Amino acid sequence: MRILAAMSGGVDSAVATARAVEAGHEVVGVHLALSRAGGTLRTGSRGCCTIEDAMDARRAADLLGIPFYVWDFSERFRDDVIEDFISEYKAGRTPNPCLRCNEKIKFAALLERAIELGFDAVCTGHYATLVNGEGGLELHRASDAAKDQSYVLGVLNADQLAHTYFPLGATPSKALVRAEAEARGLSVAQKPDSHDICFIPDGDTRGWLAEKVGAEQGEIVDRTGAVVGTHEGAHAFTVGQRRGLKLGIPADDGKPRFVLEVRPVSNTVVVGPKEALAIAEISGERFSWAGPAPTESEFACHVQIRAHAEPVPAVASVTETGVRVIPEAPLDGVAPGQSAVIYVGTRVLGQFTIDHTVSAVPAGV
């Protein structure tokens, strides 16, 4: 096959590319420039897609003896990921930019260009596996549960899966990938994994949002509507947050209070007891299926609401307006805007963006 290898400059994509070459595929490496800030440099394990990363990717491609290019996707990244991130926070939702990047950049914009240029598939260093099932190609969890990245790939559809190549999915551990990189002479063998939001490399999401969205003082209220404090901008708060509330009026029982809801229209933050974070039902209208769609309108499954959260047994229902999931045990601290990924066994069935939640503890209880 003709393979376009997305080389981030990290150890995973370098080893994935090496395996594609070793398997006999015709491989071309490409690094995506996602920022117009030409002087951007990596700081330890913070950030990605920087000048340093591009140079590391080029060195790996040179060692493997494959052509290498840098493609400027910064405008698309700005429009589809950064602006989406800002608009979601403005609407009081908590988005996942990594998932959106996979959906809009790596497996949409990049894959579209790859197919136009005659490539058969895009290769990445994600930890996930593809399985030929009875109804078609399926996306499954990786062998290494600690590194499994199937959650952030839940947005991929059947057509995208058909042009995707994940060489690392069956590797038992990240340690083996690093050892392989060392043995192959790849300079990134011990390079730290990137974390945090790549376009906020200093990790100060609140400060970054204040600059982009603006800060306006508003009220913090309890579940009855009583004002218990003020804030400098609702965008700085997320559901489940406890620290930084600076409440002027303590709870009657003296227990800590947590953010239960963010209301951007009124610039209000709602707080309450930890028990009120328990969510008995989630639903959303924006959904997609990773491969064959479910054949039943209601079925047993597991739902995962964060990249590293434990999957929870649940019952999912596909309605005329979207997807609804009722977990066996309440979910903790769910925020609108998060992605809920639905699993059946190890298979990723699909995902939806959470628009609505139902508390397991009604107001006044």
Score class of each variant (00 low, 15 high):
Glu138Ser: 02
Ala236Met: 12
Gly284Pro: 12
Ala215Ser: 13
Thr171Cys: 13
Val269Trp: 08
Phe237Tyr: 13
Ala179Ile: 03
His356Glu: 14
Ala18Trp: 00
Gly92Thr: 01
Ala61Cys: 11
Gly337Glu: 09
Glu261Ser: 09
Val152Ile: 14
Gln190Thr: 08
Ala121Asp: 08
Gly9Cys: 03
Val303Phe: 04
Ala108Arg: 13
Gly65His: 03
Ala60Lys: 05
Pro330Thr: 02
Glu320Trp: 05
Leu161Val: 07
Ala280Ile: 06
Glu182Ile: 06
Val259Ser: 03
Ser143Val: 15
Val269Thr: 02
Glu52Arg: 06
Ala251Pro: 04
Ala91Lys: 10
His163Pro: 12
Val21His: 01
Leu99Cys: 15
Thr295Gln: 06
Lys90His: 09
Asn267Ile: 00
Asp84Tyr: 14
Gly24His: 08
Thr268Leu: 03
Ser359Glu: 05
Val228Gly: 12
Val221Gln: 07
Leu4Met: 08
Lys104Pro: 02
Met1Arg: 07
Arg2Trp: 08
His231Thr: 01
Pro264His: 00
Cys101Ala: 02
Val271Trp: 04
Thr319Glu: 06
Ser187Tyr: 10
Phe352Leu: 03
Asp79Ser: 13
Ser283Phe: 00
Gly39Phe: 06
Leu161Ala: 11
Asp62Gly: 13
Asp202Val: 04
Ala340Tyr: 05
Ile3Trp: 01
Asn96Leu: 15
Ile115Lys: 10
Val30Gln: 03
Ala16Gly: 05
Ala316Asp: 00
Asp56Leu: 11
Leu4Tyr: 02
Ala340Cys: 11
Asp12Met: 05
Lys212Val: 06
Thr50Phe: 02
Asp159Leu: 02
Ala20Val: 07
Gly118Glu: 02
Ile3Gln: 01
Arg141Pro: 09
Asp120Gly: 15
Ala146His: 10
Ala236Cys: 03
Leu110Thr: 13
Glu261Pro: 00
Ser266Leu: 09
Asp253Phe: 07
Val239Leu: 13
Gly125Asn: 04
Leu63Arg: 09
Val155Met: 12
Val303Glu: 02
Thr164Leu: 05
Cys49Lys: 06
Thr319His: 04
Ser317Leu: 06
Ala226Thr: 15
Arg59His: 04
Leu99Arg: 13
Thr129Cys: 09
Ala181Gly: 06
Glu180Phe: 12
Lys255Tyr: 09
Ser8Met: 03
Arg223Gln: 07
Arg78Cys: 06
Gly233Ile: 06
Arg324Thr: 08
Cys98Pro: 14
Gln149Ala: 00
Val334Gln: 02
Ile279Gln: 00
Met1Ala: 11
Val30Lys: 01
